[in-house]
Amino acid sequence: MTRRNVAPLAAVLLIASPVIVGVAYTILAALGLRGAGASELTVRHVAAALGGWDTWRGVGWTLATAAVATAVAAAAAFTVALRVQQSPLGRLLAVLPLAVPHVAAALAALLLLSQSGWVSRLTHAAGLTPTPADFPALVYDRFGVSLVLAFAWKEFAYLVLTAVAVLGTLDRASDEVARTLGASARQVFWRITWPQLWRGTSPAVIAAFAFLIGQYEMPALLAPSTPTALPLLIYERSVDPNLLRRGEAYVVALLALTLCAGLIAAHGIWRRRLPGVTR
């Protein structure tokens, strides 16, 4: 290691130290060497957590809801960014959800989408749902409809912000050359604008997806108890009165961290492929 790298490395280790120590502790606790009920090296917690159907069902459900929400948010964000990039009012409206904390947005979703919520009242007024029970259960439901919509509402703003920034840096000269050479507006979009927009925003899309996997506040208010979302699974196991089950929280936490690290690695590989990025 060169001398100029010593101080930066020390700084990096300092800011990462809480997570390094936390993860080290999590590994030891998952192996039964630390934490409540620790005795000796054992894979009992690992086997209990990874061998349980609940865990994998929760992981699958969390990945599915996060993926659908990210896809919805990204599709809406790209559509809106392309249309409002020249409109200050449109851009301001689009980023407003950034100001609403997740727990507040979750409450808004609850007030809107529950069986006695505002949307249900509108369908009642339209004569479609005579009673609240006739309105489909969109909150605490196994498809996670309200959770997906709430996730998408929050991430939409972040992705619009990124997409507008990327669109602002695009070289429009190639669009004009393509149009001069006879390309239609549709061809210009799909062959020139879209590849550049996707390349510039894809790291943000990956980051949004990774963030949603670990989001706690919204599932705490909107998700069903079965399947259990990954962050809720970690929290419930970590405060379980049965001390032996607490070890499973560390295993599930490691699983979530591994998923997240995989996505960060994907993000890193993606960045390497971008032209002009420092390697």
């Binding site: 060169t2 100029r4 790298n5 930066p8 490395l9 990096v12 800011i15 990462a16 809480p18 997570v19 120590v21 936390g22 993860v23 080290a24 502790y25 999590t26 606790a29 630390r34 934490g35 980051a207 990774a210 963030f211 996997i213 670990g214 989001q215 706690y216 990954l230 962050p231 970690i234 929290y235 970590s238 929280a249 560390y250 599930v252 936490a253 490691l254 979530a256 961290l257 997240c260 690290a261 996505l263 960060i264 690695a265 993000h267 890193g268 420092t278 390697r279």
Partner: peptide
């Protein structure tokens, strides 16, 4: 610093941002 350390730091910082708070927090709590 050198390019490789820079890249490692940005990925590390990004990990701190997107790592599930509860997942990194259970160890941190103890």
């Amino acid at each position: 610093a050198s390019g490789r350390l820079q890249q490692l730091t940005w990925l590390g910082a990004l990990f701190l941002v997107v790592a599930p708070p509860l997942a990194s927090g259970v160890g941190l709590q103890v």
